[in-house]
């Protein structure tokens, strides 16, 4: 998995690519907590390069969503590949997360 970040308007955009699973979720967790604690309140996660997510990965996203929402911020997801979207739907996450088709919409 690779995690990179850029700025787009008000939003901090995090690009995820590769596989987010038990072997590397800790890395993303640390980064996200770092951003949130540093005061980033608008985060958009671009999942266009994400090919697999395990339940540990879902937990990290959930944790970030909860922390940011509690701080009055926004945590958006966009560009989910079909298999990732399916996992989100099965887990019932599409009703909890705000999921957008494009990065532009996610950072609007």
């Amino acid at each position: 998995m690779e995690v990179t970040d850029t700025k787009k308007g008000d939003y901090l955009v995090i690009n995820l690519s590769g596989r987010l699973d038990t072997s590397n979720y800790g890395e993303l967790e640390k980064k996200l907590i770092g951003f949130i604690e540093a005061g980033d309140k608008k985060i958009a996660v671009d999942c266009s390069g994400l090919v697999y997510i395990s339940s540990s990965g879902l937990r990290v996203l959930l944790m970030a969503l909860k922390k940011i929402t509690a701080a009055g911020g926004k945590f958006h997801l966009c560009c989910l590949q079909d298999n990732i979207r399916e996992i989100f739907e099965i887990a019932g996450f599409t009703s909890i997360f705000r999921v957008f088709d494009t990065l532009d919409e996610a950072t609007a």
Binding site: L58, E89, G92, S95
Partner: peptide
């Protein structure tokens, strides 16, 4: 058929 409900333990 799915019921569309979310995981337990978070909300």
């Amino acid at each position: 058929p799915s019921t569309g409900d979310i995981i337990l333990g978070c909300f």
